[in-house]
């Protein structure tokens, strides 16, 4: 085994690269915590990232304004999350199937409109990036830190957070205390949609365009990170950082002898190990994935 080049790993550019890779995992992952704490599994995150990236690209292209692009991306995320909510919370349909169908939907509709708007099945026109904001720092990085702090406080220290957790742990009890379980669950899913949409916006700005299927499984990795992080926003963020580091590492040291496919597998293998209970206990919210049936 060759010696690891420690000074290169601690290089500041490498660190920044790791953080940049982590952002599109972290945002949907923290979003997933909101959704699942409320009791709704949101596999549609993958599609939301994709739709968020697409709408950000379209919005930025037509307005020439990066901020308006972000608004478009986040709106698209909220919209898909809203559809997921209606189907799974109001219609009480299977959350997994709905999520998968929405992912297929997002894949189709982004490509469909990519062809119509940009006359290309693979990518959009080039768009402006975040550098047009002329900031001395990376705004998304700062945003991530703020969102992480607010999320943690919201979930564990506010009335809304308590109600959200109650809706996911024991909806019957929450209901008997006069909490509108379904409304709280809607809120959780919509927040996850907004955050994943924001993650999509980052993807579009990083590449200065939308490319077909650019979410590339990140929504699922975000879900995996949330499980490894044990349904806690800080834990999820730490897991995302680990994945970001692993990916950054393979990019930096292409000749390290570790095939990239094994690094790709890492999040998924870890998730399976955590779920099997080999690393502490994995406790999802008790009513996670179960539609709430109000008794008359």
């Amino acid at each position: 085994m060759q010696e690891l080049p420690m000074d290169e790993i601690l290089d500041i550019a490498f660190l920044l690269q790791t953080l940049r890779i982590t952002i599109p995992y972290l945002l949907p992952s923290v979003g997933a915590v909101f959704s699942e704490k409320g009791g709704v599994i949101n596999i549609a995150l993958e599609g939301i990232l994709l739709a968020g990236a697409f709408c950000t690209a379209v919005g930025t292209f037509y307005t020439g304004n990066v901020l308006l692009g972000i608004v478009c991306g986040v709106s698209a995320g909220v919209l898909i999350a809203y559809i997921h909510s209606i189907i799974t919370i109001t219609f009480k349909a299977n959350q997994i199937v709905s999520g998968i169908a929405l992912n297929i939907f997002a894949l189709g509709i982004t490509k469909f409109f990519c062809k119509i708007l940009f006359n290309s099945s693979s990518n959009s026109a080039r768009i402006e990036g975040l550098e047009t904001l002329n900031l001395p720092f990376n705004p998304f990085l700062l945003l991530c830190i703020i969102i992480l702090a607010i999320s943690y406080i919201t979930i564990y220290r506010t009335k809304f957070g308590l109600r959200l957790r109650a809706a996911g742990e024991n909806p019957e009890a929450a209901d008997s205390l006069g909490i509108n379980v379904n409304r709280i669950r809607y809120a959780g899913v919509l927040i996850s949609g907004a955050l994943a949409g924001l993650g999509g916006a980052w993807l579009a700005f990083e590449q200065h365009s939308f490319t077909d299927g650019m979410s590339a499984g990140r929504g699922y990795i975000a879900l995996a990170a949330m499980i490894i992080g044990k349904w806690n926003p800080l834990g999820a963020a730490a897991a995302c950082l680990l994945f970001g580091f692993a990916e950054s590492f393979t990019l930096q040291f292409q000749n390290s002898g570790i095939p990239t496919q094994f690094i790709q597998m890492l999040p998924y293998v870890l998730t399976i190990i955590v779920l099997a209970g080999f690393i502490g206990k994995a406790n999802p919210p008790a009513a996670d994935g179960i539609p709430f049936e109000k008794k008359d």
Binding site: I83, I87, F91, K92, A93, N94, V97, S98, I100, A101, L102, I104, F105, L107, G108, I109, K111, F112, K115, I116, S121
Partner: peptide
């Protein structure tokens, strides 16, 4: 029409399918 219309249709069939069970 871009052939992705079919992907969209497939997704919508699934979504409506699981939703009408409720009704």
């Amino acid at each position: 029409v871009p052939k992705e219309i079919i992907t969209i249709l497939q997704a919508i069939v699934i979504l409506i399918m699981i939703s009408i069970n409720h009704f």
